[in-house]
Amino acid sequence: MIRLAANLSMMFNEWPFMERFRAARDNGFDAVEFLFPYDFAADEIAAALQKNGLTQALFNLPPGDWEAGERGIAALPDRMLEFRSGVALALRYAEIFGTRRLHVMSGRAERRDAAACSAYRDALRYACDEAGPAGIEIMIEPINRRDMPGYFLDDFAFAADLIAELARPNLRLQFDIYHRQILQGDVIRGLQALFPLIGHVQIAGVPERHEPGSGELDDIRILRELEALGYQGFVGCEYRPAAGTVAGLAWRDRI
């Protein structure tokens, strides 16, 4: 059975952020994810989760200065102290929420830059070692450079090799179907080949990032394949509703 998590950074934007939890529950979701919680007190979000009977599936480590265009700092050699502080902050939030998966954004850097590669490896080792005792998995997600120009981690094969190289049991792949199609295509075979590494899945229609099934892929078939593979985690609905969140939820009836 596919378990969906509403992405509250993209969905239910018709409501203020703290009211989106209730909106998600009222529209049939029992889990949520979002980009970042750090503008709110952890206890406030935890109370919203508990009140609405929701599981917090995933959120991201602090990304640096998001408004200035930063998209993570893990691959930035001169930001390691800030990165480590961000790990500690994210783990505090995760403990309060009961979240078991955190996404580390690499940031904008070139993979040909040896210093960036070394910093990224060191950052992931550190995050995994800090998160491991709490039973928390660290996710890495290849993201396409059309949406996020200059993003360091933009290749699924590189991500898989890195997971194998670092050999941390709690380092996992975040497989975003939208990004996979734009980056490399071959989505179903990619899921099959990488399935042992996958800790979290996200979905959106390609190319407009609207509701699943609204673009060039048969997203329902892909979800059925994911189910057939035995996936037990959540599928994050990381899409931008085309014409209102609630109006666009009928796609779920096809699963």
Score class of each variant (00 low, 15 high):
Ile2Glu: 06
Arg3Glu: 09
Leu4Trp: 12
Ala6Asp: 02
Phe12Ala: 04
Arg20His: 04
Phe21Cys: 12
Ala23Tyr: 01
Ala23Cys: 05
Ala24Gly: 04
Arg25Ala: 15
Arg25Thr: 12
Ala31Ser: 14
Leu35Phe: 13
Leu35Met: 13
Asp43Ala: 15
Ala48Cys: 13
Gln50Asp: 11
Asn52Glu: 08
Gln56Glu: 06
Phe59Val: 12
Pro62Asp: 03
Glu67Trp: 08
Gly72Thr: 09
Phe83Cys: 13
Gly86Met: 01
Val87Leu: 10
Ala90Leu: 01
Tyr93Pro: 06
Ala94Trp: 06
Ile96Phe: 00
Ile96Thr: 12
Phe97Pro: 08
Arg100Asp: 12
Leu102Arg: 03
His103Ala: 14
Met105Ser: 02
Ser106Gly: 14
Ser106Val: 10
Arg112Lys: 11
Ala115Cys: 09
Ala115Met: 10
Cys117His: 05
Leu124Val: 12
Arg125Glu: 11
Cys128His: 04
Asp129Val: 05
Ile138Gln: 02
Ile140Asn: 01
Glu141Asp: 03
Pro142Gly: 06
Gly150Thr: 01
Leu153Met: 14
Asp155Leu: 09
Phe158Cys: 10
Ala159Asp: 03
Asp161Ser: 14
Asp161Tyr: 09
Leu171Cys: 13
Leu173Phe: 03
Ile177Leu: 04
Ile188Met: 13
Arg189Leu: 14
Leu191Ala: 13
Gln192Lys: 15
Leu194Asn: 09
Val201Tyr: 01
Val201Asp: 01
Gln202Ser: 15
Ile203Pro: 08
Ala204Lys: 06
Gly205Ile: 03
Gly205Tyr: 00
Val206Glu: 03
Ser214Phe: 00
Glu216His: 04
Arg221Pro: 07
Arg221His: 15
Ile222Lys: 00
Glu225Gly: 05
Gly230Cys: 05
Tyr231Cys: 02
Pro241Ile: 04
Leu249Ala: 12
Trp251Pro: 10
Arg252Met: 12
Asp253Asn: 15
Ile255Leu: 15
